[in-house]
Deep mutational scan, measured.
Amino acid sequence: AQASVVANQLIPINTRLTLVMMRSEVVTPVGIPAEDIPALVSMQVNRAVPLGTTLMPDMVKGYA
């Protein structure tokens, strides 16, 4: 199954992502693919992302 990017902590709005904030997990619905984690580093989220939330393309500025 495809692993997705999941928030490893609460990520406040406009925060630049770092590796420690993200983990890969097989979840439904599928979000951003886990292999994109390196590309997500330093991108900003456009909303607060609670712990355990799957990151979707529309949550990350410049990803989609």
Rank of each mutant, 00 (worst) to 15 (best):
A1H: 06
A1V: 13
A1C: 05
A1E: 15
A1Y: 09
A1F: 14
A1Q: 13
Q2A: 11
Q2C: 08
Q2T: 14
A3P: 10
A3Y: 10
A3I: 09
V5D: 02
V5C: 04
V6D: 01
V6A: 03
V6Q: 03
V6Y: 02
V6F: 01
A7Q: 00
A7R: 01
A7V: 07
A7C: 03
N8Q: 10
N8F: 03
N8T: 08
Q9A: 11
Q9V: 13
L10I: 15
L10P: 15
I11K: 00
I11N: 00
I11T: 02
I11F: 01
P12C: 05
I13K: 15
I13V: 13
I13P: 11
N14I: 03
T15M: 12
T15C: 04
T15V: 10
R16A: 15
R16P: 14
R16Y: 14
R16L: 14
L17P: 03
L17I: 14
L17C: 03
L17G: 02
L19C: 08
L19Q: 08
L19W: 10
V20K: 08
V20A: 14
V20M: 15
V20G: 13
V20E: 13
M21F: 05
M21D: 06
M21Q: 04
M22N: 01
M22H: 00
M22Y: 02
M22P: 00
R23L: 07
R23Q: 08
S24G: 07
S24K: 08
S24T: 15
S24C: 05
S24N: 11
E25S: 05
E25R: 04
V26P: 12
V26A: 08
V26S: 10
V27N: 03
V27H: 03
V27K: 06
V27S: 06
V27F: 02
T28N: 11
T28L: 07
P29K: 08
P29Q: 08
P29I: 10
V30I: 11
V30N: 09
V30F: 10
V30T: 09
V30S: 08
V30D: 08
V30M: 11
G31D: 00
G31A: 03
G31W: 02
I32Q: 00
I32Y: 01
I32L: 05
I32E: 01
I32G: 02
I32N: 01
P33N: 06
P33S: 10
P33T: 08
A34V: 11
A34Q: 09
E35H: 07
E35F: 11
E35K: 08
E35R: 06
E35V: 13
D36F: 10
D36E: 15
D36L: 11
D36K: 15
I37C: 03
I37K: 09
P38D: 08
P38F: 08
A39G: 08
A39V: 09
A39S: 11
A39W: 14
A39H: 15
A39E: 07
L40R: 00
L40S: 00
S42N: 15
S42V: 04
M43K: 15
M43A: 13
M43G: 04
Q44S: 15
Q44R: 09
Q44G: 05
V45R: 00
V45T: 11
V45D: 01
V45N: 03
V45C: 03
V45W: 00
V45S: 05
N46A: 10
N46V: 14
N46K: 06
N46C: 04
N46M: 13
A48K: 10
A48C: 05
A48W: 08
A48Y: 10
A48L: 09
V49A: 05
V49C: 04
V49M: 05
V49D: 01
P50W: 05
L51C: 05
L51H: 13
L51W: 15
G52N: 11
G52V: 02
G52A: 07
T53L: 08
T53S: 13
T53Y: 08
T53E: 09
T54W: 02
T54I: 10
T54N: 02
T54E: 02
T54A: 14
T54Y: 01
L55A: 00
M56V: 11
M56K: 08
M56H: 08
M56D: 06
M56C: 05
D58N: 10
D58A: 13
M59Q: 04
M59P: 00
M59C: 04
V60E: 02
V60I: 06
V60G: 00
K61G: 10
G62Y: 05
G62T: 04
Y63N: 04
A64M: 09
A64H: 15
A64I: 13
A64V: 12
A64W: 03
